[in-house]
Structures are given as structure tokens and as C-alpha cells.
Amino acid sequence: MPVLEDTTLESEMEQFERDMNWIYTHYETLKREYPNEFVAVFNQTLVAHSPDIESLIASVQPRFGQQVGNIAIKFIYAEPPAIVLTPQ
């Protein structure tokens, strides 16, 4: 396995994973409040939500600039999707 040792990068990734974990942990609450919307979380705080991904990014980009890439963004399904993923 190609391994990289970079503590700065790992720290950034750890921050992202904490925020993604926050979304997973609060999923039921988010589902009640923002069903079928994208949510954006940074530092374990909800910073934006929108049913439309372009609008979501447009709302956070002025505040975060290139840091947008470090925001945890996830679509909150109102119901579990029955989607077959395998592409054709």
C-alpha cells in the first residue's frame, strides 16, 4: 500500500472527519429539519443548508474561500434511497 506520512495533511483530514462524523451522529435531527437538502458543517457547526448544491456552495464560498474543500457536505435523504448505483 502506498503510504504517505504528513501530519499537517492528516490533521486537516481529521478535522474533516470530525465534521462528517458530526453529521452522521446528528443525522436524525438533520433529517427532521432539512429533509432532502444538502448540509454543510465546519468545526462541528452547521454553516449552511440548501436543496440545491450550487446555491449551497455559493452561500459558503464568500466566507470560506478555498477552504470550501474542508467543509463536510452531505445530502440528507428524507427516506433511504432505493438507487442502484452501478453505472452503465
Binding site: E17, L56, I57, Q66, G69, N70, A72, I73, F75
Partner: peptide
């Protein structure tokens, strides 16, 4: 440079970045 998540799809021959991911990752 972008944090993101992928679903594991053992039936897919290749990785794919979704449109929402593409927008989020600029």
C-alpha cells in the same frame, strides 16, 4: 484539495465523482 466521501460499489468497474461532489470540490 477537497474532503469528500464515496460509496463502496463492488459492482462498478470504476470510481466516479458525482455532480454534487464536483460542485463542492470546485
Amino acid at each position: 484539495r477537497c474532503g469528500t466521501e464515496f460509496a463502496i460499489d463492488t459492482g462498478s468497474p470504476m470510481a466516479i465523482l458525482s455532480y454534487p461532489q464536483a460542485v463542492s470540490c470546485l
